[in-house]
């Protein structure tokens, strides 16, 4: 008598399992084909000298040795980090302040401000690069016009290393500051208001509240955005390609790691070498994320 419901329950369990695996299978199949397999295959290709016709010779770790000796790789590494540094630190700091202000209860027109600061994020990187390319133009760009009003000589942003990095960083900053502010705002809204009220009663100023309540409680969000901007920043590609052109400009002032990877693979058809660069990029992202996580955690235990 008991056998039947038990049987049914068992059937249900099996069916549940089958359904669950079926429901999650599309992602895992796709990830196997376009994620895991390419990752392993990239590692294998990176051990070969491999060109477009498919002629390949096994050369072991030679490609990685070439990378170490390649001045373009070091240049791209320097550029990538420089652009990341110039864009991320001011961006996150600015986003924090912005989120803090947007969260003030006395703010009128909250919806309007939130939408407008988020607006840059919807623009494509290509569009941003075109607009900022025009803003940073040497002869007639708006930035140089503003500088001329201050009595300064026009700057040729495109031809100098720092100028290029500043221009590209400003594109990243413009596009992501509002986004990060909205993410922080989400975190801020989960901080109970009585904490601020108690602090106000104890005579804490707004500035003290910001540094001693807001920042410590927002740390998980801060870590999240640092990791996200690290991953994004290390992969920066469209902005330098659009701003500096192929090869990152005459002296490679805009050459980033992904741009180098793209050119080696799809302009020079050096698939083996490009694959080795791809793995180097992955190592750099993982290592740098861990370093950032370490520092972010350390900040947390400081107080």
């Amino acid at each position: 008598m008991l056998a039947k419901p038990l049987n049914r329950a068992l059937n249900q369990r099996i069916r549940d399992h089958l359904n669950a695996y079926l429901f999650i299978s599309p992602f895992f199949i796709l990830f196997a084909v376009f994620g895991v397999f390419p990752m392993i295959f990239t590692a294998w290709v990176s051990l070969h000298k491999w060109n477009i016709v498919g002629a390949k010779t096994f050369i072991g770790l030679q490609n990685y040795k070439f990378i170490m000796e390649d001045p373009y790789f070091w240049k791209s590494l320097y550029n990538t980090f420089s652009i990341w540094f110039l864009s991320t630190l001011p961006q996150l700091f600015f986003a924090l302040i912005l989120a803090f202000l947007l969260n003030q209860s006395m703010l009128k027109g909250r919806e309007f401000f939130r939408i407008s600061v988020f607006l840059p994020n919807i623009t494509s990187v290509v569009a941003v690069a075109i607009i900022f390319g025009a803003l940073f133009g040497q002869h007639y760009g708006l930035i140089n016009y503003a500088l001329s009003l201050l009595g300064m000589d026009p700057i040729d942003f495109r031809s100098s290393v720092l100028g290029t990095h500043l221009a590209i960083s400003s594109m990243v900053m413009w596009r992501w500051t509002g986004y990060n502010a909205i993410i922080y705002l989400a975190g801020l809204q989960s901080i109970p208001n009585d904490l601020y009220e108690a602090a106000t009663i104890d005579g804490a100023t707004k500035r003290q509240q910001f540094f001693f309540i807001t920042i410590p409680l927002l740390r998980p969000m801060i870590i999240f955005t640092i990791i996200l901007s690290t991953i994004g920043g290390m992969q920066i590609f469209a902005e330098p390609l659009m701003f500096s052109g192929p090869g990152g400009g005459s002296q490679g002032q805009g050459l980033t790691i992904t741009l180098l990877l793209y050119e080696e693979a799809f302009a020079r058809q050096a698939f083996g070498y490009a694959s080795a660069i791809a793995w180097m990029l992955f190592f750099i992202i993982v290592a740098f994320s861990l370093v950032n996580m370490f520092f972010a955690k350390k900040l947390q235990s400081a107080d």
Partner: peptide, 20 residues
Amino acid sequence: FLVGSMMVPTQLGLIPSYMI
């Protein structure tokens, strides 16, 4: 595993994906 897969940059699979 799924969450971890978000850490993998698309560039890592770019060339084989192109071949596929």
